[in-house]
Amino acid sequence: MMTTSATPVQLLMSRRSTKLVRGPGPSDQELAQILQAGMSAPDHGALRPWRYVVIRDEAVGRLADMAIAAVKRTGDPRMTPEKEKNNRTWLAQVPLVLGVAQKSFFDGKIPEHEQMLAVGASVMNVLNAVHMLGYAAFWSTGLGTNVPDVQEALGFDPLEYRFLGFVAIGTPAVDLPTMQRPDFHEFVTEWTGGKPHM
C-alpha cells in the first residue's frame, strides 16, 4: 500500500501512465480491489458493459506470441522485426496485463457511445486504484487490439464485443518525474445564463 502524506485528491492528481513496469505486480487481494474499483464506474442503465480478462506471469509471454503472430498474419507492415523485439522486451518485464472489452447491447435503450464511456470510466477507476496501491499502469491500444484474431483468442466474439486494448500493470521500474499538467482554466468556461464567451 502506498504511504503518503498527500490528500486523496493530491494523490489522484499525481497519477501518470508509464510502460516502464516490472514485478512484483499486485497480489491477489490487491488485484481484487483494483477490479472492484472498476465496478464503481458511472453506468447509464446499469448495463455493466465492461469486461476484463486477467493475463499474468507466464501467460503474458504467451499473449506476446499470440498477438504478434496475429498481427503478422494481417500483413501489417508496422510489425517490423524491431517493433516485435521492442514488444517482447517490454512484455517480458510486465507481471500483469488486463485485456479490456466493451460488451455491446443493441436494444436501443442506451446509446453505444454511452456504453463505451462507461467502460472508459471503469478503466479509469482501475488506473486510479492501481496508482493508489503504489503500482503503475499503461493502457495500450497496440499489440493487435484491432485484430479480430487477438480479440477472439481472448474470448471476445467481435459480434458481441468491442476490444479496447490492454492495461499493463506492475511496479514502476524507474522513478517517475511529476507530469506538468495544463491549467484547468484553459479548458473550462462558466455559463451563467447568457451568451457563452469562449
Rank of each mutant, 00 (worst) to 15 (best):
M2E: 07
T4I: 09
T7E: 10
P8L: 13
L12F: 12
L12P: 01
L12Y: 06
M13C: 09
M13D: 01
R15N: 15
T18W: 00
L20Q: 15
L20K: 15
V21M: 07
G23R: 04
G23L: 04
P24T: 10
G25N: 02
S27A: 03
Q29M: 03
E30P: 03
L31N: 10
Q33M: 10
I34D: 00
Q36E: 12
M39S: 10
D43G: 04
D43H: 13
H44W: 05
A46M: 14
L47H: 04
P49W: 12
Y52H: 09
Y52A: 05
V53N: 00
V53P: 00
A59S: 14
G61W: 05
G61H: 11
L63Q: 00
A70R: 08
T74W: 13
G75R: 02
D76F: 12
R78V: 01
T80F: 12
E82A: 15
E84G: 10
K85R: 06
R88N: 09
L91W: 14
L91N: 04
L98H: 05
G99S: 05
K103A: 14
F105P: 04
D107W: 13
K109M: 09
I110K: 06
I110T: 15
P111L: 05
E112Q: 07
L117P: 01
L117E: 08
L117H: 04
A118R: 15
V119M: 13
A121T: 01
S122D: 12
S122C: 12
V123S: 00
M124F: 08
M124C: 05
N125L: 02
N125A: 05
V126M: 08
V126A: 05
V130K: 01
A137H: 07
A137Q: 01
F138N: 14
S140A: 15
T141L: 10
G142N: 12
G142S: 14
L143W: 03
L143Y: 12
L143F: 12
G144Q: 02
P148C: 04
E152D: 00
E152A: 09
L154C: 05
L154W: 08
L154E: 11
G155P: 05
D157A: 11
E160M: 11
R162N: 05
F166V: 02
G170W: 10
G170E: 08
T171G: 03
L176G: 07
L176S: 06
P177Q: 12
T178V: 11
T178F: 05
M179V: 11
Q180H: 11
P182T: 08
H185A: 09
E186K: 11
E186M: 11
T189M: 13
W191N: 01
G194M: 02
G194V: 03
H197A: 12
